[in-house]
Amino acid sequence: ETEYTFDDKREADRAAKEAQNNGLRVHVTKDGNRWKVRID
C-alpha cells in the first residue's frame, strides 16, 4: 500500500488513472485542501 499527496486534483486524478490502468486498486480522498491517492 502506497500513499501520495497532491495539491492539485488534476495531478491526483492522473496518478489514480495511471494506477488503475496498471490494474491496481486506487482510493482518492480529500484531506483539507490537498488530495491523497492510496494505492493497494
Rank of each mutant, 00 (worst) to 15 (best):
E1S: 14
E1N: 11
E1V: 15
E1Y: 15
E1A: 14
E1R: 13
E1L: 14
T2Q: 12
T2C: 15
T2G: 10
T2A: 11
T2M: 13
T2Y: 13
T2F: 13
T2K: 12
E3H: 06
E3T: 11
E3L: 10
E3V: 14
E3N: 06
E3P: 04
E3C: 15
E3R: 05
E3D: 06
Y4N: 04
Y4C: 13
Y4G: 03
Y4Q: 08
Y4F: 12
T5D: 05
T5P: 02
T5Y: 15
T5W: 15
T5L: 14
T5V: 13
T5G: 04
T5H: 10
T5F: 15
F6N: 01
F6H: 02
F6V: 03
F6P: 01
F6C: 05
D7E: 11
D7F: 11
D7A: 11
D7W: 09
D7R: 08
D7G: 07
D7H: 09
D7P: 05
D7L: 11
D8V: 06
D8R: 08
D8M: 05
D8S: 15
D8K: 08
D8W: 05
D8H: 10
D8T: 15
D8I: 05
D8F: 07
D8L: 08
D8Y: 08
D8P: 01
K9H: 08
K9S: 05
K9A: 07
K9F: 14
K9D: 04
K9G: 04
K9W: 15
K9T: 02
K9Y: 14
K9E: 11
K9L: 08
R10G: 13
R10I: 12
R10Y: 12
R10Q: 13
R10W: 14
R10F: 12
R10N: 12
R10T: 11
R10S: 13
R10P: 06
E11H: 07
E11W: 06
E11L: 10
E11Q: 10
E11R: 05
E11F: 05
E11I: 05
E11M: 10
E11D: 14
A12Q: 00
A12Y: 01
A12S: 02
A12N: 00
A12I: 01
A12K: 01
A12C: 06
A12T: 02
A12G: 01
A12F: 02
A12R: 02
A12M: 03
A12V: 03
A12P: 01
A12W: 01
A12H: 00
D13M: 15
D13P: 01
D13E: 12
D13Y: 15
D13R: 08
D13A: 08
D13F: 15
D13T: 08
D13S: 06
D13V: 13
D13I: 15
R14C: 12
R14S: 07
R14M: 10
R14Q: 10
R14E: 11
R14L: 11
R14D: 08
R14V: 07
R14Y: 08
R14A: 12
A15L: 13
A15I: 13
A15R: 08
A15F: 15
A15K: 11
A15Y: 15
A15V: 15
A15P: 01
A16L: 05
A16M: 07
A16F: 05
A16E: 04
A16K: 04
A16G: 03
A16H: 03
K17M: 13
K17N: 09
K17G: 06
K17P: 01
K17V: 10
K17C: 12
K17Q: 13
K17R: 13
K17T: 10
K17I: 11
K17E: 11
K17Y: 10
E18L: 12
E18S: 09
E18P: 02
E18M: 12
E18N: 10
E18Y: 09
E18D: 09
A19N: 03
A19L: 15
A19C: 09
A19M: 14
A19Y: 12
A19R: 03
A19F: 15
A19I: 07
Q20I: 13
Q20T: 11
Q20G: 06
Q20N: 06
Q20Y: 10
Q20K: 11
Q20C: 15
Q20A: 12
Q20H: 10
Q20E: 12
N21Y: 08
N21T: 09
N21M: 14
N21K: 13
N21W: 08
N21Q: 13
N21R: 14
N21S: 13
N21F: 09
N21H: 10
N22T: 07
N22V: 08
N22M: 14
N22R: 15
N22F: 04
N22K: 14
N22W: 05
N22I: 10
N22P: 02
G23A: 03
G23M: 03
G23E: 02
G23H: 05
G23L: 03
G23D: 03
G23S: 03
G23I: 02
G23R: 04
L24N: 06
L24G: 04
L24K: 08
L24S: 06
L24E: 03
L24T: 03
L24M: 11
L24W: 12
L24I: 05
L24Y: 14
L24D: 03
L24F: 14
R25S: 09
R25K: 10
R25P: 04
R25Q: 09
R25V: 11
R25F: 06
R25G: 05
R25N: 08
R25D: 05
R25L: 08
V26G: 03
V26L: 02
V26K: 01
V26D: 00
V26S: 05
V26Q: 01
V26P: 04
V26I: 04
V26Y: 04
H27S: 13
H27V: 14
H27N: 08
H27W: 12
H27I: 14
H27F: 11
H27D: 06
H27M: 12
H27L: 12
V28L: 07
V28K: 02
V28D: 00
V28Q: 03
V28T: 03
V28I: 12
V28H: 00
T29A: 07
T29Q: 09
T29M: 12
T29D: 05
T29E: 12
T29W: 15
T29P: 00
T29K: 07
T29R: 09
K30V: 07
K30W: 13
K30Y: 13
K30A: 09
K30N: 06
K30P: 07
K30Q: 12
K30I: 06
K30C: 11
D31H: 09
D31T: 07
D31Y: 06
D31E: 13
D31P: 01
D31F: 08
D31V: 13
G32M: 02
G32E: 04
G32H: 03
G32W: 00
G32C: 03
G32F: 01
G32T: 01
G32Y: 01
G32K: 04
N33K: 06
N33I: 04
N33H: 08
N33G: 09
N33L: 07
N33A: 06
R34A: 06
R34F: 09
R34Y: 09
R34S: 07
R34E: 04
R34L: 09
R34T: 07
R34P: 00
R34G: 06
R34I: 07
W35G: 00
W35L: 00
W35T: 00
W35P: 00
W35Q: 00
W35A: 00
W35H: 00
W35K: 00
W35C: 00
W35F: 04
W35S: 00
W35M: 00
W35E: 00
K36H: 08
K36S: 04
K36I: 15
K36E: 02
K36D: 00
K36Y: 08
K36R: 13
K36A: 05
K36V: 15
K36M: 07
K36F: 07
K36L: 12
K36N: 05
V37K: 01
V37H: 00
V37S: 00
V37E: 00
V37C: 08
V37D: 01
V37A: 00
V37P: 01
V37Y: 00
V37L: 07
R38V: 14
R38Q: 07
R38Y: 10
R38N: 06
R38F: 10
R38D: 02
R38E: 05
R38K: 10
R38W: 10
R38H: 10
R38M: 09
I39E: 03
I39M: 04
I39F: 07
I39L: 06
I39Y: 04
I39K: 01
I39D: 02
I39N: 01
I39R: 01
D40F: 15
D40W: 15
D40K: 10
D40R: 11
D40Q: 13
D40S: 15
D40A: 12
